[in-house]
Design a binder for these strands. Structure first.
Lengths: 325, 325
DNA sequence: ATTTGCAATGAAACCCGTTTCATATATAAT
DNA sequence: ATTATATATGAAACGGGTTTCATTGCAAAT
């Protein structure tokens, strides 16, 4: 693999001059410049990023830690962050944790060792709070609420209001027996959504009926079946996310329960598939793109220097489609 | 950020000794070892990966270039490669190209500069053949056919047979007016699938009816509408992939055309969503997991040293579900 | 008591691109 | 013609792990 010094020798100049041509950091005689560029072209020289990173103590990289790349919600998030990062001159580095706190910690450590400039953690669990507190790289939390100042910034949307909206919408659509498939309660997002559901139930004096389910469609299938046994009178289901809502629909369809005729469904996240279903899924919209943009923007504009504990809460909205009346 | 030399000073040893403890490359006095480990723990020292990479000329990284992370087929592929890479001690590095050949080249160059140990390109276009030929890092092509020896290995499945199977299945299921929504023809996978369709049509003396469509669900919606205008007699549709098949189903559903009653549909890829739909999608299964595993295995076992132009062709199969009779 | 051999350890060189600082050359000003 | 200033360029140092090679210390063998 050819080095900058070899290019320099071939061009009859010093490595410094080649470096200056590559980076445009200083004016170089146009003859030499041309010669250098030609030799780079001919030899296919590519600067060693490890050496660059070592010197500048920055890999020009934004790390993104997500619980599951298979979940289209995170895929969308990742795709946006990918785009925005590249636009801002950063390499996006995606880490998949499979909802495993140990893997979350490992990913964090890896990104630190790689000299990532910032780390975006999406829907992270509380288990890595400690690790994040000690992280020498600014961490932006996305899609999770934080009470303390461990992170440099916290971007999320109004989960509680989302939970309320879903419940109120079902009540307005005529449901009296609403079951909430609540998400894993060690996640802030799941907890606050659930709280919204609970409060609206209390306000309307309707029974609180719940099952708990991971953000995973196989478990969604299982929990929906359990739900139907446990609450046979159900006429409205709030799923913890769209994936689970899709599994819910599937189970109802198989059991010949009409949607939205007998049971209405509301999802969460508005993943792109939610409107591809037939019937299309009523769901709560998170402004994923804007949230992703904000996260990258904060990093690119270097607004995280002080551990400022910035908070950005985005509004949610309900989109009524075909799984509710 | 603390360095290995500072750790060494605190422990009263040399940097070499600390390095040996971290990597287990040589025996170290157990007292010193313990002291070193304690100090690493206390200070939160993390070795600088850039320095390591610079020295060993390898980032212990497998690059993965995919056309679109939003397409669940590639997401699944990426998830498997992610898992297997980590298991083999490599960092997976995902690059998204948005079907843009320039971005494909940029990703390739970036991975080279980062000292990736190998690069897996999924469904790459022919446009980067030249760039791959000159790539100093072994390239494994996944989900694309190659005629020449530009890549170190080529892993794909039998697209042609897949195209045949889909067509024969529709014929056996009673279709006489089959329309093929063929994929982008600059991609080998799309071309061979289409060829399979054409050959079966010829053998059975049924008309060849085609529209062309990218692997994208929005275009899938549009092309299905066009298809229905162009071929109103259609009774069977072969979609170029599952995403397009899902859009096809959606358009038919909206137009009250029953599936599989009036029109039958076959997809391609067997993405996880295909069996979540109601009705579940009949499709062609690619052994994605096995293909991903083979790719990582070749790299991890260092079987790519000679530019051996290895070929691995995986069989496809058809899974008849609910969109065909 | 002396030599041989081995194990543990440290100093220094190395990986390669970037930057600083000093030098050489050219231009402008006196 | 001479000094002052600006510009282009190169040598050397740096960043932080890793490895080689030499050394030290100690135990076993003679």
């Amino acid at each position: 693999m050819i080095t900058i010094r070899e290019v320099a020798k071939l061009a009859g100049v010093s490595a410094s001059t080649v470096s200056r041509v590559i980076n445009g950091t200083a004016k170089v005689d146009s003859d030499k410049k041309e010669r250098i560029l030609r030799i780079i072209e001919e030899t296919g020289f590519v600067p060693n990023e490890a050496a660059r990173t070592l010197f500048r103590k920055s890999a020009k990289t934004i790390g993104l830690i997500v619980p599951s790349i298979r979940n289209p919600y995170f895929t969308e998030l990742a795709a946006y962050i990918d785009d925005f990062s590249l636009q801002c001159g950063f390499r996006p580095f995606l880490c998949n944790t499979g909802y495993d706190p140990e893997k979350e910690k490992a990913a964090l450590q890896m990104l630190i060792s790689m000299k990532a400039d910032a780390i975006i953690v999406a829907s992270c669990s509380e288990y890595i709070k400690e690790a994040i507190k000690n992280c020498p790289v600014p961490v932006v939390s996305l899609d999770a609420m934080w009470s303390g100042p461990e992170v440099a910034a916290c971007i999320h949307c109004d989960y509680y209001e989302g939970g309320r909206m879903a419940t109120e919408h079902l009540i307005e659509s005529g449901c009296h027996n609403i079951v909430c498939i609540k998400g894993p309660q060690y996640r802030y997002s799941a907890r606050y959504r659930y709280q919204g559901y609970l409060d609206v139930c209390k306000e309307h004096n309707i029974p609180e009926q719940t099952v708990e389910c991971d953000y995973d469609f196989n478990q969604g299938l299982a929990m929906t079946e359990e739900l139907l046994k446990k609450y046979p009178e159900v006429d409205g289901i709030i799923a913890c996310n769209d994936i689970v809502a899709i599994s819910t629909y599937k189970v109802l369809y198989e059991q010949n329960i009409s949607v939205p005729g007998q049971v209405q469904i509301v999802g969460f996240d508005n993943i792109s598939f939610s409107k591809l279903l037939s019937p299309e899924l009523t769901t709560i919209i998170q402004p994923i793109k804007e949230m992703a943009e904000k996260a990258v923007e904060l990093i690119a504009n270097n607004e995280l220097t002080e551990l400022s504990d910035k908070k950005f809460i985005f509004p949610v909205s309900l989109i009524a489609r075909q799984t509710t009346k």
